[in-house]
Amino acid sequence: MPEILEHHSALAHLGLAARAVATRDAGQGVGLAEAPYRAAVNLRGRLDDAGFAAGAEQALGCALPAEVGAVATAGELSALALGPGEWLVVGGSDGPALRARLLAALEGVFASVVEVGQQYATIRIAGPKAAETLQKGCPLDFDAAAFPAGRCAQSLLSKIDVLVWKRSEEPAFEVTVRRSFADYAWRWLHDAAREYGVAILAG
């Protein structure tokens, strides 16, 4: 009987759990945490195809948002509109099951459902100076009016591609990067936040 093999996160080599401070508070500065693994699927299809729109809604429990940057949430799943006809569906911890559910609902419809949960790492940056930290390396406008809660955007952070998601009114952002860029993203954010005071938080 083969043993259950360990699953390593993108930042496992940094030993963050051991370095995390007890409090969940970022204090006056910035708190950084690696978000735990979550399932993700890259979903492609045409919203003007009734079968696609209906199938996706049935599988996810909410209608896919049409506007790029919008996010629709139902239960543990969220669909982030990355581009016209492209969504990142995230949530839960069973990637194959999420994929299977969508494929079943989209049977016979022209669509693409590709599991990508292993491909990404997500860093959560929170605190009063979170926006200023991101602003250092990202050309988006992080002013509260320009980047309201519930929105996402793809852009650059220093030299890497990122997906930034502001989930709530809290001063916090989820920064999703490709797995192999996670180390650089973490080091960069930690270094950028140093002048404000940075704490490693539990994920």
Partner: peptide, 17 residues
Amino acid sequence: RDVDALLDPVRTTPIHS
């Protein structure tokens, strides 16, 4: 701050360690 270790991303595979 794009100097020294932050000059450019160093991409490694999950097997790197």
